[in-house]
Simulated scan of single mutants.
Amino acid sequence: LAVEVITNMRTVKQLSMEHEVSRQYTNMVDQVLIMFWKPEAMFSIVLGLYWAMDSATLGLLYWRALVLVEKNEMDMSDVVMISAFGMFALEALKMVGMLAERIGKSFAAAHAFFDLFDRTPTIDNGSNKGQELTNFSGETDFNQVKFVYPSRPAVLVLNKLQLSIKSGQRIALVGASGCGKSTIVQLLERFYDVTHGELLLDGVDIRKLNLQWLRSRLGVVSQEPV
């Protein structure tokens, strides 16, 4: 959002949207804060306890060594050796703590990675099943279609869309950015299935058609063709 606003600063000023953009950015920052403050707070507490234990352990070690020196049960060479051992041991524990944090993050990332590969898509792009229309004319009907993107389930992109396109008819979809023009094309390509309602091609539900056959009958030139 920040990059888009800075890049299009003139447009933001022309539309007097400075306060609205600031509000949206503040909401996004607040969401990130809510998401991360608990784990970061726990990490800070654990790190503080760790360093406190470090200092307390060295203090206890030196105190015990001085007590033994006073009782002539230990000489200064032993004190130096024990001090060096204590410092090296604590440094090793610090490294273990740092590695444990990284290992934990690696396990979490690997879990998300394997979950992605284990996920079964609702639309099988490699499927050869489904009906193939012999006399395909291209007549298209959107019948009370509702649609939301899986990543944004609270945003209703299409709401009871009713649209009929006859064979050979040329139409233009015109509207503001985000109103659902590209979504309609993606539904025709069956990148997504409609949430509610029906999308019919020649009177047949698009979900019953062979996916490979369907896409081979469509010609698309995108906004940024490669």
Rank of each mutant, 00 (worst) to 15 (best):
L1N: 10
E4H: 12
E4Y: 06
V5N: 05
V5R: 07
T7Q: 06
R10T: 08
T11C: 06
K13G: 13
K13I: 11
L15N: 15
S22Y: 04
T26Q: 13
T26M: 09
M28G: 12
V29L: 11
Q31A: 14
I34W: 14
F36D: 05
F36V: 07
F36P: 04
F36N: 07
K38V: 15
K38S: 10
P39M: 07
A41L: 15
L47Q: 07
G48Y: 06
G48M: 10
L49P: 00
Y50N: 14
W51Y: 15
A52F: 10
M53T: 03
G59A: 15
L60C: 08
L60I: 06
L68V: 00
V69Y: 09
E70K: 02
K71Q: 03
N72A: 10
E73A: 13
M76F: 14
D78G: 08
A84G: 12
A84T: 13
A84Y: 12
F85W: 03
F85Y: 04
F88R: 11
A89D: 12
E91G: 12
E91R: 15
A92N: 14
K94V: 00
M95I: 08
M98T: 03
L99M: 09
R102N: 02
R102S: 01
I103D: 02
I103P: 01
K105C: 14
S106K: 09
S106R: 06
S106I: 05
F107W: 08
A108G: 12
A109T: 15
A109W: 14
H111R: 15
H111E: 15
A112W: 12
F114A: 12
L116Y: 15
R119C: 07
P121Y: 09
T122K: 12
I123M: 05
D124L: 05
S127E: 04
E132W: 00
L133F: 07
T134G: 03
N135C: 07
N135L: 04
N135V: 05
G138S: 02
E139G: 06
T140Q: 01
T140E: 03
Q144R: 11
S151H: 15
S151F: 09
R152K: 04
N159Y: 05
L161A: 01
L163K: 01
K166T: 10
Q169H: 04
R170T: 14
R170Q: 08
A172S: 07
A172V: 06
L173E: 01
L173N: 01
L173R: 03
V174I: 06
V174E: 00
G175N: 05
S177W: 02
G178K: 00
K181H: 03
I184M: 08
I184F: 03
L188M: 09
E189S: 02
R190V: 01
F191Y: 14
D193M: 11
T195M: 05
T195A: 08
H196G: 04
H196F: 08
E198Q: 13
E198R: 09
L199V: 03
L199Q: 00
L199W: 02
D202E: 02
D202F: 03
G203N: 12
G203E: 12
G203M: 14
G203I: 13
D205P: 05
I206Y: 04
R207P: 13
K208G: 07
K208C: 13
L209G: 00
L209Q: 02
L211C: 08
Q212A: 01
W213K: 02
R215C: 02
S216W: 07
V220C: 01
S222N: 07
Q223G: 02
E224T: 09
E224S: 10
V226G: 10
